[in-house]
């Protein structure tokens, strides 16, 4: 792959002359494809791979004042294993984002189902309505939840105003549940789209057949619709789980001390604590953990699907 893109790179800049190279390029579709892809691919390659490589190198260093001790050491990783604060925050991040993922998928499934099966006109309007907030500022959507859940926020002051409660409910803001609610709300579009796509693809005649053969609505759903929409459920889960695990804004604004997540810890290493190598190591550990969990999840669902189909 890489050698082809490397070959295609000079080709993109050479004017089309009759030489060996351009003949080669006109003949091979792969060469042409990589030539056309090269601007985006080179940029993303440079902007993603090199910083990651540096991050990996940095994670094996240690800070010395404002500089680094460039001697290779596993100290940062050892610290992450040994000091409970890191493990605790990593576990909490995984737990919070698992909860957010489960809630989001469960709540979005009926919605995607409704649009896929029961909306017949203006489906696009529904899809736009469901995904529109997702395009706008994540920061402001989280801020809106702070306004809603705050100690003197919409819910508390509203309930006091109508006389249902005397004291503000303290558990609303600055808690893991506030983070879970906000994450589930903010990432809904990421669940709706894959769920909708997989439900929309289901051949309606299969459902007719199940009905004709005597399945009731419940059996039909669990034997046909749900198994066939599993790919959507899986991609929705992954699409929400990965970004929410490393989220920074939501726990920073709504988490409080008990809702702090690994993203906040990483930011602290690059900010106030000024221990960049530790921050780099935490970022690497976070990525590896996410990758391992996703791989395990995909494998498990793969075997489960094999057994039920």
């Amino acid at each position: 792959m890489t050698d082809q893109s490397a070959l295609a790179r000079p080709a993109a800049q050479t004017p089309p002359q009759v030489n060996w190279f351009s003949r080669k390029i006109h003949k091979s579709e792969t060469f042409r494809a990589y030539a056309v892809l090269s601007p985006a691919l080179l940029f993303l390659g440079f902007a993603i791979l090199i910083p990651f490589a540096i991050l990996v190198v940095l994670s094996f260093w240690t800070p010395v004042g404002f500089d680094f001790n460039r001697e290779f050491t596993l100290k940062n990783y050892r610290d992450i294993m040994e000091r409970p604060i890191y493990g605790t925050l990593l576990w909490r991040s995984l737990w919070i984002s698992t909860m957010a993922t489960v809630f989001t998928v469960l709540l979005c499934y009926p919605m995607a189902y409704y649009v896929a099966f029961h909306v017949h006109r203006n489906k696009m309007v529904w899809i736009v309505l469901m995904t529109l907030p997702f395009w706008t500022s994540y920061l402001l959507r989280v801020f809106a939840w702070k306004v809603v859940l705050g100690y003197e926020g919409v819910i508390n002051s509203g309930l006091i105003w109508v006389g249902w409660i005397e004291e503000p409910l303290k558990f609303l803001l600055y808690s893991p549940s506030a983070v879970i609610i906000t994450l589930a709300h903010a990432w809904a579009a990421f669940a709706i789209l894959p769920l909708y796509v997989s439900l929309e693809k289901i051949d309606k005649s299969l459902l007719e057949a199940a009905t004709d053969l005597g399945d009731g609505p419940m059996r039909r759903f669990f034997r046909i619709t749900l198994p066939l929409s599993l790919p959507g459920v899986i991609s929705a889960s992954i699409l929400i789980f990965i970004p929410t695990t490393g989220d920074y804004i939501t726990p920073a604004l709504l988490g409080g001390p008990n809702g702090m997540m690994i993203g906040n810890l990483i930011q602290m290493q690059f900010g106030p604590t000024n221990n960049w190598p530790m921050g780099a190591a935490l970022a690497i550990v976070l990525m590896l953990t996410i990758a391992a969990i996703c791989a395990a999840f995909i494998l498990i669902t793969f075997f489960v699907r094999k057994r039920i189909t």
């Binding site: 910083p51 540096i54 940095l58 990965i242 970004p243 490393g246 993203g263 930011q267 690059f270």
Partner: peptide, 13 residues
């Protein structure tokens, strides 16, 4: 999909 904080710190470095 990748948490943007990771891109943020990687680019900062």
């Amino acid at each position: 999909v990748v948490p943007l904080i990771i891109f943020g710190v990687a680019l900062l470095v």
